[in-house]
Amino acid sequence: MSTKQKVIIAVAITAVIGIALRIFLPVGTPLVSVRAEELFHIGGYTITNSLLLTWIVMALLIVLAVVGTSKLRSGNAEALKQPRGLQNALEYAVEMFYNTMQGVSPKFAGRFFVIVATIFFLVLPSNWFGLIPGVGSIGLCYSHSAEHAAAPNYVATAGISTDTAAPVLAAAAEGGKYTHNCPSGTAFHPFLRPGSADLNMTLALALISFAVTEFWGFRSLGFGYLGKFFNFRGGLIQAAVGIIELISEFARIVSFAFRLFGNIFAGEVVLLVMAFLFPTLLSLPFYGLELFVGLIQAFVFAMLTMAFIDMAAESHGDHGHEEHAH
């Protein structure tokens, strides 16, 4: 039997199993909540599930960095020359990212690499954590508090998963004791939710990126930086262009925040809907797509921050000159 035939048979079997599961097992309605769900309170602060996952990501990054550089910090001369294992992988990732940033902004890549790389290496695992089965599908039913009742759009119906957990498992959860169909008056809150699928996190990152850009603009050009936006000497057209620049400067915050949030949240919803539409196989190609989207969005966020920093530093006058020199 050739490989091709084996593949066809495997696909046919999974398709039949999928159709059978879809028909014979009850399927709930998918749960989609735009806001991150609350889990518990610590001293007046609300801990949401996206915050919890972001902490996990942060802990993971810290552990990776500490373990990866342990040989370096112990003063091992050999580790400096010939990195191997985890240290090698980390160095490869950082160096590749640094070279890309060098291409974006040759002048300021070294100075702002810390901020840009932090954004990239925080957003990337945040995006990808949402794809792990169990994230967004395991949780508890929480009873409505007063503030929930005040928000009429809060979706109370709970589905089996907000992620593509292994399809068979998800379907088994439907029939078995792990069902997430919460009783009325309660809402399903998953324990984990990717940080990028929470608007608060992406807005915070966007504000950091915006603040760094403006800071660098003022730092390198002084108050002449404002001349970019309030340019009344060059006539009416120049003044209008300046105002448009000013508006688009602030629109960056919105577009930064919603680009990341929209892409990751929409990816979650697509995977969820596909898993409900057809429990096996269908969500597989979208899984690959979401891996790609997660990487691209993390990269775009970091790269745009770098590009905007680079743009903020060049004054209006020497723009043409600068281009000429390249």
């Binding site: 974006v104 629109a251 577009s255 929209g262 745009l304 590009a307 905007f308």
Partner: peptide, 15 residues
């Protein structure tokens, strides 16, 4: 670089 900046500005409308 310029392409990505342009894409970001264009994409802003959709956002």
């Amino acid at each position: 670089t310029n392409m990505f900046v342009g894409i970001a500005l264009t994409e802003g409308l959709a956002i």
